[in-house]
Design a protein around this nucleic acid. Structure first.
Lengths: 141, 141
DNA sequence: TGATTTTACTTTCCAAGTCAAATAAATTTC
DNA sequence: GAAATTTATTTGACTTGGAAAGTAAAATCA
């Protein structure tokens, strides 16, 4: 299917959705080999940084709604990748911490994600790729 | 929540997902006022171009998986926005056509989407916005 | 301090999405 | 030209996602 003069292609929201879909599909296929979903990787990668994050903070960083995160963390707990800890300062808050297994798996998966990034960067060219990231950050602010 | 040195921000896939999420959320809120979802708008916008598209072609353009499209088109048929027609040349194929109501509603919704695009374009600057679309197309090819 | 409001997270219920199988028509092969 | 294969779409079982309500702790306030 080829339709070079389709007006929908000119909408920024569409161009973004199309690029996102392609990248997600590609990354998702890669991570499936490791038996993990993209969001779970994001959680492990974020927690690895070492900051003690609450569910709410984590939800924001990993781009998920809180109820969806709750359910994914449930699954990750039963897979032994993370555990929960009620924050001592504020008992409403729940911290999420990676387990030893979670850290180990993250390092393996990170390589896969980096390969993917390199693949797309070489597809675009290095300068174009950094320009793209810069512009995307401008969208988010 | 602010974490300027979080390594996850440096992945192209993450930057793309974050920008996409923000734009989808904003557009989705706008379209909710018209009682329609983003994908349904994409379908109407695509069909408006006048080409006679099959379910498969439409699925590709509107960035949906075929089973998901089938169900959305079911709903749009019962909302009176589109109708199906078995292709005469190949009876396996199904064409989707907009109804008069579908065309009318599309014109209203298009304005909303264009406002949204203008909003984001002025946020980025006109040149940066066209550069972004160009780079995003490079990702998809 | 007791009552009210706000905040953090989870649960519930329903709508929507996915994967694999089913159906049905067209094409290929022998 | 019948049988086997491929292609286009839908169906059905199951899972996931989202909105709104529920729970519980902290903060505000009167």
């Amino acid at each position: 299917m080829e339709s070079s003069s389709n007006p929908i292609q000119d909408y920024l929201s569409y161009a973004l959705a199309a690029a996102h879909r392609k990248m997600q599909a590609s990354l998702s296929t890669r991570l499936k080999q490791h038996g993990i979903q993209i969001e779970a990787w994001r959680i492990l990668e974020t927690l690895e940084a070492g900051h003690r994050l609450t569910m709410g903070q984590l939800a924001e960083v990993v781009l998920m709604n809180p109820p969806t995160l709750t359910k994914l963390v449930d699954r990750m707990v039963s897979d032994g990748l993370v555990h929960r800890q009620v924050a001592q300062a504020d008992h409403r808050q729940v911290n999420v911490l990676p387990t030893a297994l979670g850290k180990k798996r993250m390092l393996q998966i990170r390589e896969e994600v980096q390969e993917q990034d390199i693949e797309f960067q070489s597809l675009l060219g290095k300068d174009e790729a950094s320009k793209l990231i810069e512009l995307l950050r401008g969208v988010v602010q």
